[in-house]
Amino acid sequence: MKIQEKLREIARKLLAGGEAGVVIGYAAGSEVSRVVPAFISREEDVDRLVWNPLCINNLVKYLLDYRHEPGKVAVVVKGCDSRAIVRLLQDNQISREQVIILGISCPGLINPDLVAARLDPEAQIKAVTTSEQDFSLQTEREIFTFTRDEALLEKCRYCEHHTPVISDFIIGEEIPPTTPLDPFTAVKALEELPVEARSAYWDKQFSRCLRCYACRNVCPACTCRECIFDQAEPCWVTKANNLSENMAFHLIRAFHVAGRCVDCGECDRVCPVNIPLSLLNRKILKDVKELFNVPTPGTSLEELPALGIFTNSDPDEFM
C-alpha cells in the first residue's frame, strides 16, 4: 500500500497547487476484482485513487480527450503503459508539457479471474503485499494469497520495463529492466506450423470477431482522426460480418500498427471473444525487430518507429 499512499500524496499536491487540472488513475470498481479508470479533479476525491495488482487498464489513451483543454493532466502509468506515452508523443498527439507522468514501478499484476473466483465480489481490498513469490490481498475479513506462478498476469510474465521508460515521478522502488521469458514463444510455435494450419488457426479466430472495435478504440497506436473502418466512402471494408471482411479488418489494422504497437496487451484484454490479438501483433513485432534491429516501440523517445523513418540501410524484402 505504500505506493497507493505515495500516489495519493502526489495527486493531492498536484491538484492543490493547481499544477494539474485532473489526475487520471484507478479507483475501486463495481466488484472486488475490477478497477475503473478515474478522473480526479478535486482534492477531496483523491482518496478514491487506488493502486493494486488489478490495475490493468492502460490509461494513456484518455490523454487524447484532454488535448484541447487548458491545464495539465497527470496520468498514472505502469512500465508497459509508459511506452504508450512515448507512442503518443512521437505521433504528436500530445505535448510533453501538458502531461505529468506518475510512473509506478510495477512488480507485476494479478489475473483478475482468479481474484473473482476466490473473493466475494462485494469484498474490498484493504491492503496488498507483493513479494518475489506471491501476492497477498487483504480484505475486511481475510487474507488471500496467490502464488506468482499461478496468478501473475500473462503479459507481466514477459515484462521488459517494470519501471516506466518516461516519467515525472517514479513511485515505488525502481525495478531495473529485466530479460523476461521469451515473449515470442507462442509466435515461434505458430511459425512452426504448416501454412494451412496457420491459416486455419487465424480463420477460426477471425471468424468470431464481432467487429465491436474495442481493440482499436483502446489502442494507443490507433489515433487517426477518422479510422478507415468508419469511412463509408471509399469503403475499404464493408460492415458485413464474415470471415473475409473480418480478416481484412484484422490484417489492415495489424499493418497500421506495425512497428508502432507498444505491446501493452490492451487489445487482448478488451476483446470480448478472446481473439489473441497480441499474438498477431507480436508476430509483426518480432519481424520488425529482426528486420530493423530495433527495441520494442515506445522504449525511447529517440528511437522513431521503424516503419516511420527511412534509411539507406533498410532491408527491402517487402517492396
Partner: peptide, 16 residues
C-alpha cells in the same frame, strides 16, 4: 458525464 468519460465507445455491450 462521469460514466461516459471512461467509456471507449466500442460495440461490446450492445453486440453481446
Amino acid at each position: 458525464d462521469e460514466i461516459a468519460r471512461r467509456c471507449l465507445g466500442c460495440g461490446i455491450c450492445t453486440y453481446i
